[in-house]
């Protein structure tokens, strides 16, 4: 009973002081709101960049064209075994010159005429393997190993293009994460200062609580609850903005924002739920941390 009365009192006091010190609470709340809006943008950006990186990576393959002397019936098995011995190989797919010819035929009528003039033996194309890798970062190494293999005439993969795209994505992601961490630290500091101001006006209150024999922990708990209220209130606007904003953005642009090879934007569901959860937790923790450091100052003698 006594325990519940205490809990009840802690919540009542916390709520009361958020309302009584409204202007200062508002300062702390806006501080959290602004940061969390930026954090929300960073989350949206980095999640999408991450998805794009994965999409692009999974679609990158090395095409190895084989020399004329490669005989599909005799050499295929031994070549594949040798290929599989390389570490980084994910899937391999054989494509004969005949298949290429069929594909070329379908481009338009003129190509079709040319291809029809070839006989099976005189097709001036090469057999090939399409190879996907496990780790895209090691693609250069794998490519050069394949190039050195027997029967391989030449290989083809978008070296420069892929490299720079992946590097850019990597940088964007790191900047986002770094930015989010820096922002959170700065906000925690700002909030602890704002709450310090708020608590300064209640110095007498804390002093009297101490005088009448309130233990430090029971003085601290209402302030912690107050901090988390402020954190939760501060995260409402960012959450609403992110949920509605991203949903609208997605519906408006959907798959058309980038070239198809980059894939599409991450679907808003369940992404915005996770995002909202993350924002709420960040707000809550930052608010609690801020008020806990602020109140500590007045609990010393």
């Amino acid at each position: 009973m006594k325990f519940f009365r205490s809990i009840n009192r802690y919540f009542r006091d916390a709520l009361r002081s958020v309302i009584r010190n409204f202007s200062l609470s508002l300062a702390s709340i806006s501080c959290i709101t602004i940061t969390l809006v930026v954090v929300a943008l960073s989350i949206v950006l980095s999640v999408n960049v991450d998805a794009m990186t994965k999409h692009v990576s999974s679609n990158i393959s090395i095409v190895a064209f084989l020399k004329e002397e490669f005989n599909a019936t005799n050499d295929k098995e031994s070549f594949e075994t040798e290929l599989r011995k390389l570490d980084n190989i994910n899937e391999i797919k054989f494509k004969s010159k005949k298949e290429y010819a069929e594909e070329t035929k379908e481009i338009d009528d003129r190509f079709s005429l040319i291809v029809d003039s070839w006989t099976d033996e005189s097709i001036p194309l090469l057999d090939s393997y399409e190879i996907t890798v496990k780790d895209i970062e090691l693609i250069d190494d794998t490519a050069s190993k394949i190039k050195g293999m027997n029967f391989v005439y030449t290989i083809n993969y978008g070296e420069d293009y892929i490299d720079s795209v992946i590097k850019i994505f990597d940088v964007i992601e790191k900047v986002c994460i770094g930015g989010v961490i820096a922002l959170i630290l700065v906000t925690a500091f700002l909030i602890s200062n704002t709450i310090k101001l708020a608590i300064f006006s209640r110095k007498t209150e804390i002093e009297i609580m101490r005088l009448v024999g309130a233990s430090n922990i029971s003085i601290k708990i209402p302030f912690l609850i107050e901090g988390s209220f402020i954190g939760i209130l501060g995260s409402i606007i960012p959450i609403v903005l992110m949920a509605y904003g991203y949903n609208t953005f997605f519906n408006y642009f959907g798959n058309n924002l980038f070239p198809a090879s980059f894939g599409s934007l991450v679907s808003p569901y369940p992404f915005i739920f996770y995002g909202a959860g993350i924002l709420l937790i960040i707000g809550l923790l930052v608010g609690m941390f801020g008020s806990s450091t602020a109140v500590k100052k007045y609990l010393k003698i």
Binding site: T204, G213, A214
Partner: peptide, 24 residues
């Protein structure tokens, strides 16, 4: 210790010249 001060404070009462009442 600082965090045990409340044990003492619960056994004593303090009156000040400047009252220290909560105005609200």
């Amino acid at each position: 210790k600082d965090r045990k001060v409340y044990i003492l404070r619960r056994k004593i009462g303090v009156v000040f010249q400047d009252f220290k009442l909560l105005p609200r």
